[in-house]
């Protein structure tokens, strides 16, 4: 589905990614874990075309998308739920969802997507005409995920969906992420600092440290890795 090979990205003189490679197979949940400033967000922003890499390649469903502008990447079926949610705060929940379906021309398909997101996040339906900025953090995350779903993606990248959210809502959101993957067959690349949670829901994991992949493997085996335990799972 998605393949990143030898990706280099820098911000001026600062190298954020020093040549990383990773794969997300069809239908799977892959996680990318790592501490502050490891380069997780940079990876996602480069994949979706918001940042230009110095070198390396991003392939999505067999097509080289490395130099495509973000809106064209989205048009190919890639959804990106950005760090900090970035919902359109002055717009209503309804308008945010409509913007999520910006590229969709079939009214029936848009209506079906709306029904689907209301099914998984019924709360959004209750808040439909509320200004999105007035939602709670967890609700905003639900909206951000739903907005991405409105574009009928085949693959979604989620950037720290647990950040700044009440623990009670975190589990709901992660259950929904699994559900989206299972029911719709949408492949997922999950970026997390919360390694416990990420390893629990994913099939395969990569560990990113200061711009380099330092460890990778099936999530179950990484969960028991002593090195990883010491660094990310609190012993």
């Amino acid at each position: 589905m998605l393949e990143i090979s030898d990706l280099f990205v820098s911000y001026g003189a600062i190298t954020a990614l020093g040549g990383i490679s990773l794969k997300v197979p069809k239908g799977s949940i892959v996680t990318l874990i790592g501490g502050n400033g490891a380069g997780k967000t940079t990876t996602l922003r480069t994949v979706s075309g918001l940042l230009r890499p110095k070198s390396g390649k991003v392939t999505f469903m067999g097509e080289d998308i490395t130099r495509l502008p973000a809106h064209a990447v989205v048009a190919r079926g890639l959804g990106h739920v950005p760090e900090g949610r970035m919902i359109f705060s002055n717009l209503t929940v309804d308008e945010n969802l409509a913007m999520g379906a910006y590229l969709k021309t079939s009214k029936a398909a848009v209506a079906a997507s709306r029904d689907y997101v209301f099914g998984i996040f019924p709360r959004l339906k209750e808040r439909l005409h509320q200004t999105a900025g007035t939602l709670s953090g967890g609700e905003q995350q639900m909206l951000a995920i739903s907005r991405a779903l409105m574009g009928e993606p085949r693959f979604i990248m989620l950037d720290e969906p647990s950040l700044g959210i009440a623990p009670r809502l975190i589990s709901t959101i992660f259950e929904r992420i699994i559900e989206i993957n299972r029911d719709r067959g949408i492949a997922i690349l999950l970026v997390e600092q919360n390694a416990h949670l990420a390893l629990e829901v994913s099939n395969y994991a990569y560990v990113l440290e200061t711009g380099h992949i330092t460890m990778q493997g099936p999530s179950e085996s990484l969960m028991n890795d002593p090195q990883l335990k010491a660094a990310y799972l609190g012993g």
């Binding site: 989205v74 950005p82 359109f88």
Partner: peptide, 22 residues
């Protein structure tokens, strides 16, 4: 739709691109 897109771009150009707005 285009007006809503205008407001979306004004609020957050990055997020606007991520929903497919050129």
């Amino acid at each position: 739709k285009i007006g809503t897109a205008m407001r979306a771009v004004a609020l957050n150009p990055g997020a606007a691109q991520l929903v497919g707005i050129n």
